[in-house]
Design a protein around this nucleic acid. Structure first.
Lengths: 109, 109
DNA sequence: AACCTATATATAGACTATCTATGCATAGAT
DNA sequence: ATCTATGCATAGATAGTCTATATATAGGTT
C-alpha cells in the first residue's frame, strides 16, 4: 500500500445506504455525516462519493431529487428505496460476517 | 457490486503477514491457513495471493526461500522480516482504527 | 497404463473501486 | 473584491481484486 486509504475499499456503498436510513440527504451531507460519525477517521472524497451514488442509483437502491437546502442552495437529495433498504440488510450481514472472519484469522494466526 | 468478493479489499497483506508470525509458510499453506481460520468464509485466490506475496517481497516485509515440503514437493517458504513484523503492527493498528470508525458510522447513522 | 485429485507456483488480462485533479457554480463573510 | 464553505460532476491514474490459463508432480483409483 503506497499511502493509507481514507476508506476501506468495498465499504462505501454500505455506509452511504446506512446514512440514508434516518432521512434523505444530499451528497455533500452524506460525506459530512460519515466524516463526523467516524470522528474524522473516514473521509469520502468527491471522486469516490459521486461515482458511488451513481452506482446506487443505477442499481435502484436509492432515488434522487433536486431540491433547495435550508441555506438556499440547489442540491440533489438521495432517498433509500425499498430495494435499497433490503440491500442494506444483505450487505450489513455480509460485512459483519467478513469482519468476524478476518478477526478470527488475526487472532488465531 | 456484481458478485460478493471472497476478501475485503485491502486486508490481504495484513492477513498474510499475520499468518507468518508463528512460522514460515509457503503460498499454498498461507491460503489454506486463511481459509481454515476463517471457517471457509475467506478464500484467497491464486491470482490474489501470488501478486500479494510479490508486493510483500518487494517492500521487504517478507523473504522467500525454496525448500521441499514434508510431502516432498518444491515450495517457496516465506518468512517475516524484522521490518515486516513492525509493518504488521502498524497495519493492525490502522485496521482496527478503521473498523472501529466504520462501526461508529453503521451504529449511529 | 491411464486418469484424476490435490498440491504447488506464476502470469496476463479484466474488472472494480478508490484517489487526484480539475471544472463549474454560488452564498455569505471579511 | 476576495475568500471559504457549500454543492455537483467527470476524466484519468492507481491499486487490488478476480478469472482464466499454464506448468509440474505426488499419490491414489480404474
Amino acid at each position: 500500500m503506497a499511502k493509507k486509504p481514507e476508506l476501506l475499499p468495498g465499504t462505501l456503498d454500505l455506509m452511504i445506504l446506512k446514512t440514508l436510513t434516518r432521512a434523505p440527504l444530499h451528497g455533500y451531507g452524506i460525506a459530512l455525516a460519515i466524516k463526523q460519525l467516524s470522528d474524522d477517521v473516514l473521509t469520502v472524497e468527491e471522486g469516490s462519493l459521486y461515482p458511488a451514488l451513481q452506482r446506487l442509483l443505477l442499481q435502484g437502491w436509492v432515488k434522487a431529487e433536486w431540491k433547495m437546502t435550508e441555506t438556499n442552495r440547489r442540491a440533489r437529495y438521495y432517498t433509500l428505496t425499498v430495494a435499497g433498504r433490503k440491500q442494506l440488510g444483505i450487505e450489513l450481514t455480509q460485512f459483519e460476517q467478513m469482519i468476524a472472519a478476518i478477526g478470527r484469522v488475526l487472532q488465531n494466526a
